[in-house]
Design a binder for these strands. Structure first.
Lengths: 387, 387
DNA sequence: CCACTTTGGCAACGCTGTTGCGAAACCGCA
DNA sequence: TGCGGTTTCGCAACAGCGTTGCCAAAGTGG
């Protein structure tokens, strides 16, 4: 077992953990906010600890008081809410023929978004130029404010390595093989960059945006030019050893089926895309449902989200068809996801570490957002709201 | 998302986390032990912190100094090792027709094991009697020492709920439906009890016993009377929403295949067991490999362990057959597991919380093992080894 | 023999969440 | 209107965590 994955914890880690936890709850609470007592309940911390933590958040400009709640028999609670404009993140979605860039605030709300054509096969320099230009335009559109952009998340089809940010043999585009995308983008954009597979980014975004309700685990199935999946297990995106998890499309469903470009026979992708090409949506949905059922049984999840161009064009039919195969027991919800899951998720790659959702460097993210100043200076008291 | 799954952390949680981490490293180090400096390196804690933690472990009787290492140019390191006999755990494996009970020490080494026939369908009282009797005999065999038995882990086929310890419709044995196994066992045996599915217990045991090397994720495939799997993802057993994860056997591999008792067609279990019944080991291995390949691609794991009676009877042939289907890239290791993985894993269900491997109540476990005395009394200095 | 390296303990320290206590603000009832 | 009860929340003192600074011990190598 890899012990380096479970490091020792010190007081800094403890503080950052709790701060991220509270920030996440505040984000989930939305503009109405949450009271300190409520936060204490949800976290298991004492009210005093929550007061100290929210005090730090207020000093850092990440949270503020937001009016009073109705009393429940005693002193009315003062709501605390996230200040979404305290920081922003950029999401970049690279497709074979298109580039989408978005700028979102801490709550995930979109400040500006642009889509433009792209030739991903044109090579690194051309793509870097295009992305840098679009990022600049999006920032200008959003008001030109250069304040508080925490970083950029980049989502693309893969295969790639999330930890190092290095691309592998992108199908049909050998020029990208071995390209250190993260470092190149970070240098060019002048900000921290996180790279992930498109389906993983989408799945992460769905978690952070509260689109999955109370489900701790779910699968996001994406049917576009290919068929892939993003897996969230126990609240965390499961990427596997080589960021290769989610290879849903090359699941063998028919041992003696038609050959696939991957070398096997009867992959669900081939069967499904054939049905789509024939216009047989019902059969495509049935195949998708069979694959989803395999996945649901293997991982015991109770939510399946559907996305990608093909599925969204007939989301009702696909959802119904998949639901039909899955049956009712155990009860699995099948829901179509939004239109821009991937680019929104790309931006969330940056925000995840702030909100205790398994980002790669929570401490740096919190520091960058104004918490935990590197110099050992203690922040002054925020001053409480008194008459 | 379920925020109750990510609670706030206080100083107690921090101390317990680090203590469990160090205990886990000491267990992995085996009888040769590990030096404080080495522990500091692996945990990322400062040497001083490690000294304090190991001091507490020594006071609690869980660790001791174990001689000197060769010098590397300075003062030679003093090795610290786990004292395995400081505590014990009981593992119970319930099968349809057999009962196995084992008593292991902290290192997982077996002190005594007994197997006896059992009629699982005979109902709760008869089974409780049998288990209690066997547990008493095993304790007697192990020397009669009643000291330091932390609890019992119970592994059985399921379906069941790990968190509550309640059984669901055990296939073919309706009398067990809804039976609160954990609480009934806990009362009868007079000790804490953890219940889990047999394949999950086996997978957990393989992690804790260091049988999986540096792999953070792997699948344990078990082919006995049925076909199931235990999944470890990112170092943690993945149980899913209802402890139902690992339903490998009812993965559809042949859309128009023979009907299965689960209602679908072409489940891998039916296909595979048919091949086994025909004596066609090569075909069974090929089918198993195809299912394993689906799983490996979906989860991006690089280790598959094989267990269960059928597989172990011809482990070489099965491993080779599975390896053949999986191919070499990405490199997936296929290895047969040991004979008693389930009952050993059942005992590890109890030990897991001590060693920072995701047990359900680490604090209680550490307290029970002699650490973190409930009264606020600080433990005295352990006294260092001086001439 | 002496410089150097490495291990590891002691004491003081900074920072964490916790506890004890009290003020503020509201409800409900007399 | 007055008073007790309830709930929220801050201040101050506190215990306990890992960290830092310093030093002793015990080897190696010139």
């Amino acid at each position: 077992m890899n012990r380096t994955l479970a490091p020792g914890a010190n007081l800094t880690a403890l503080r950052d953990h709790n701060a991220a936890l509270v920030l996440g709850l505040l984000r989930d609470a939305g503009p109405d906010g949450a009271s300190r007592a409520e936060l204490a309940d949800r976290t298991g911390l004492t009210p005093q600890a929550v007061s100290k933590i929210t005090g730090r958040l207020r000093v850092a400009g990440l949270a503020a008081e937001a009016g009073r709640r109705a009393s429940t028999g005693g002193k009315p609670a003062t709501a605390l809410r996230l200040l979404p404009e305290a920081a922003h993140a950029i999401g970049v979605h690279l497709e074979r023929d298109a580039l989408t860039v978005t700028l979102v605030d801490l709550s995930g709300a979109e400040a500006a978004t642009r889509t433009s054509p792209l030739d991903l096969g044109a090579g690194a320099e051309a793509v870097l130029d295009a992305v840098a230009a679009e990022v600049a335009r999006v920032r200008a559109e959003a008001g030109g404010s250069l304040l508080g952009v925490l970083g950029a998340g980049v989502a693309l089809p893969g295969p790639l390595d999330h930890r190092t940010g290095v691309l592998q043999r992108v199908t049909g585009m050998p020029r990208w093989d071995g390209f250190p995308l993260r470092d190149a983008f970070a240098e060019r954009l002048g900000m921290p960059v996180v790279v992930d597979k498109d389906t993983n980014a989408a799945a992460l975004g769905l978690v952070l945006r509260g689109c999955v309700g109370a489900a701790g685990s779910f699968a996001y199935l994406h049917l576009g030019t290919g068929l892939g999946a993003g897996l969230v297990l126990g609240g965390e995106v499961h990427r596997g050893a080589r960021t290769g998890a989610g290879e849903f499309g090359h699941q063998v469903l028919q041992l003696d089926g038609p050959p696939c470009r991957c070398g096997n026979r009867g992959c669900i992708e081939v069967l499904c895309l054939d049905a789509v090409a024939r216009g047989d949506t019902a059969e495509a949905a049935r195949l998708l449902g069979t694959g989803a059922a395999n996945l649901v049984r293997l991982l015991d999840i109770d939510l399946v989200l559907l996305g990608g161009g093909v599925l969204l064009n007939a989301s009702g039919a696909y959802a119904a068809g998949v639901r039909d195969v899955l049956g009712g027991a155990p009860p699995v919800a099948v829901v179509p996801a939004g239109e821009r899951t991937v680019v929104e998720g790309a931006a969330e790659l940056v925000l995840a570490s702030l909100f205790g959702r398994g980002g790669r460097d929570r401490h740096r993210a919190l520091e960058q957002a104004g918490l935990a100043a590197p110099s050992g200076l203690t922040a002054p008291s925020p001053g409480t709201s008194r008459p």
